[in-house]
Design a binder for these strands. Structure first.
Lengths: 186, 186
DNA sequence: AGACTACCTGAACGATCGTCCCAATAACCG
DNA sequence: CGGTTATTGGGACGATCGTTCAGGTAGTCT
């Protein structure tokens, strides 16, 4: 039974985490295409070979980044649903605000998430991670609403993607009627 | 007034078109990341320098490919709407079938379209081309249904993207209830 | 203290990249 | 027919890529 952890491993895993965060920043700025050992290392402020030491290859670095990203997405959208529910009929307003935020100040992050999403489409080993936030949300909802909830999630994805190619990001007010209609029960 | 076109330019534009088609095939197979002068040239069966002659750079090649792709998408979805309308209440079935087809046999093409979509998010000069099919469809619909139609288009996009990260593509039967709910009037 | 091990890093390798250069070809114009 | 021009294609340049390697540093263990 080891009571004292290896200080070296602690620093190593800390640096590993910093590299992942730097990778995410690079993807937000330049896209997945801009991710190389050297750009990530420069962003993280570490030597080039450090990224090859902590990750078997560039592929593993992207996988680890998607894992981290998926975890963030899941907890974030979890709290979004929670807040929207607690506000009752004002839920639509809350959703519209969050969409406008994702397409405005957090636009880079949203692009990064969908790029990793498409990366998962080509690499089966990434799919469970990419699906995680969908699964988390689906498990939160009543089973008799399953179809309505799937439509809701699909609508959110579609609004975000279409909002990404707008010349200027849509405001919460513009999004509001669409979200209202999307949430309106049949 | 020139009545006789230059035969050289005709062959040149034909080859230019072949390069664009080859680029689209490369994107379907390996993604935008796999697009280089050399891979495209090999796919098209032309020497490497031919792609740099007909396009000012790799960037222009991707732009031209997105243009072509957007044109195809617009006409394709135009006929989808047309067919769905002519079938009246069976429209939902038609839409579900087309979604299943886009996620099954035409999965590579669907991935390529969304990759180019995200590319447009980063390059403003591509946005009008990427938005073309949205605009074409929006102009087809009655103005009092605008919100409902936007929700419909967003739902289609969301279902396609989510279907791309499924381990096995959803069937038309699985898609059917969701599409039904999506088309159900409020 | 000495052996051990995990972490760190500068240098370098071969491969591939975008792009340029220039000669060759062939269709068009006068 | 000679001159012009658009297209073709082989070769090469410098830059950058992923990855390897060998040596150096510093915590941990006996």
């Amino acid at each position: 039974m080891r009571r004292q952890v290896d200080g070296r491993k602690l620093r190593g895993e800390k640096r590993r985490g910093e590299i992942i965060e730097a990778t995410l920043r690079v993807i937000e700025r330049d896209g997945v295409a801009g991710v190389t050992h050297r750009t990530v290392a420069k962003e993280a402020g570490v030597p080039t070979t450090s990224t090859t030491y902590h990750f078997a290859g560039l592929n593993d670095l992207l996988i680890a980044t998607l894992m981290e990203c998926a975890r963030d997405m899941a907890t974030e959208v979890y709290w979004m649903i929670d807040r929207a529910r607690s506000r009752g009929s004002r839920g639509a307003e809350e959703v519209a605000n969050l969409l406008a935020e994702a397409l405005g100040p957090r636009r880079g992050r949203t692009m990064a998430e969908y790029e990793l999403y498409l990366l998962a489409a080509r690499r089966p080993e990434l799919r469970t991670a990419a699906r995680r936030w969908l699964d988390v949300l689906t498990s939160m909802v009543r089973h008799d609403d399953e179809v309505a909830f799937r439509v809701f999630l699909a609508g959110i994805d579609g609004l975000l993607i279409q909002g990404l190619i707008d010349d200027e990001p849509p405001t919460a007010e513009e999004l509001r009627p669409v979200v209202d209609y999307l949430l309106k029960p049949r």
